[in-house]
């Protein structure tokens, strides 16, 4: 494990789940839940004779940023694609439940607590969703995570971080969309249907999953930023993600409703304007939408350095 200070400059993309978890919070503050020493491996993988991991591919725990308790969930893409099974799903649910319970306790026992003394949850997604080896349990866990998000509303902000190799797809793609705030790097990808499945459904002429640039401009961080599907786009370092979480950690929980994409009748109406635009435009490519948003040269914009992108990009107004 790299030292905390060296982790800050490291690529978020290249880091592993535990490094991301430790690096997001203040130095030396991370306490892991159901970590390697607890050896909670998946009994279902064992039954199938598949390799197991002591943390079942999800690092969970709590640390601090300044005074703020930060509950962390970090998925490991290198272990079976970051897929969610019974153990890993239960770790996610338990961490969310624990954060909500702490928020309830603080509200009751410390009514004068400052905003930065109240907990937040940060989830680094790196997953294609359900783990097929224990598909049914994984599916049920997704529903439980979604339910915990709704229970957390107005109590604990849930912040999504996406900057990993696998991206965030499948059921976890809509789980992430249901959080309060989304932070991505340009290497992060967020969606529902992975590129291979779209190709299979629509044909290679419509969507070539081997075309990396196409894949990134359909689901990558820059595109999601144009669409308003992520709130923040940051550099690909652990420190940059951490800095964004630190900014958000200071805010009152009420400030997060305005960052949401979905979760209310009004937001559904807003999203439906986007759907109407999609129906009207029938875009062949994400670049058509960038243009519609007011970016005259989407190809150039896709290739400028991130700071220049952020300074000049026009985001889609709905």
């Amino acid at each position: 494990m790299s030292k905390w200070s060296t982790l800050q400059d490291r690529s978020f993309l290249e880091s592993n789940a535990r490094e991301r978890a430790i690096g997001i919070v203040d130095e030396g503050t991370f306490t892991e839940f159901a970590g390697p020493l607890d050896r909670r491996t998946s009994p279902h993988l064992e039954t199938l004779g598949e390799a197991v991991e002591f943390d079942d591919g999800i690092v969970t725990g709590v640390g601090k940023i300044g005074k703020t308790p930060v509950f962390v969930i970090s998925q490991e893409g290198r272990f079976i694609g970051g897929s969610v099974g019974e153990v890993g799903g239960a770790k996610m649910v338990a961490t969310l439940k624990t954060a909500i319970a702490l928020a309830d306790r603080i509200a009751k026992e410390f009514p004068k607590a400052a905003d930065d003394e109240k907990p937040v949850v940060a989830i680094s997604f790196e997953t294609g969703g359900v783990r097929l080896h224990e598909a049914n349990a994984g599916l049920l866990a997704h529903a439980e995570v979604m339910d915990q998000f709704q229970r957390a509303r107005g109590k604990v902000p849930v912040i999504t971080l996406i900057g990993s190799k696998v991206g965030c797809f499948g059921g976890m793609g809509f789980v992430a969309a249901a959080t309060d705030a989304i932070v991505m790097s340009e290497f992060g990808r967020l969606g529902l249907t992975g590129p291979e499945v779209i190709e299979q459904e629509m044909g290679k002429d419509e969507f070539d999953s081997a075309d990396r640039a196409l894949v990134y401009r359909t689901t990558g961080g820059r595109h999601k930023y144009v669409m308003g599907d992520c709130n923040f786009i940051v550099a690909d370092t652990v420190g940059a993600f951490r800095a964004q979480v630190a900014e958000l950690a200071k805010l009152p929980v009420s400030a997060f409703e305005a960052m949401r994409r979905i979760g209310s009748a009004a937001l559904v109406e807003k999203q439906l304007k986007g759907v109407a635009l999609a129906a009207e435009m029938q875009p062949k490519d994400a670049r058509d939408v960038w243009k519609h948003a007011g970016n005259a040269d989407p190809v150039a914009l896709a290739n400028v350095p991130l700071d220049a992108f952020k300074a000049t990009v026009k985001r889609l107004a709905l």
């Binding site: 992430a176 969309a177 529902l192 779209i198 459904e201 969507f207 937001l267 999203q271």
Partner: peptide, 16 residues
């Protein structure tokens, strides 16, 4: 499962 769906964010509709 389409391209337009991914461009505009099918994940938001089902999540909503």
């Amino acid at each position: 499962p389409g391209k337009v769906e991914e461009i505009f964010g099918m994940n938001k509709a089902t999540g909503a």
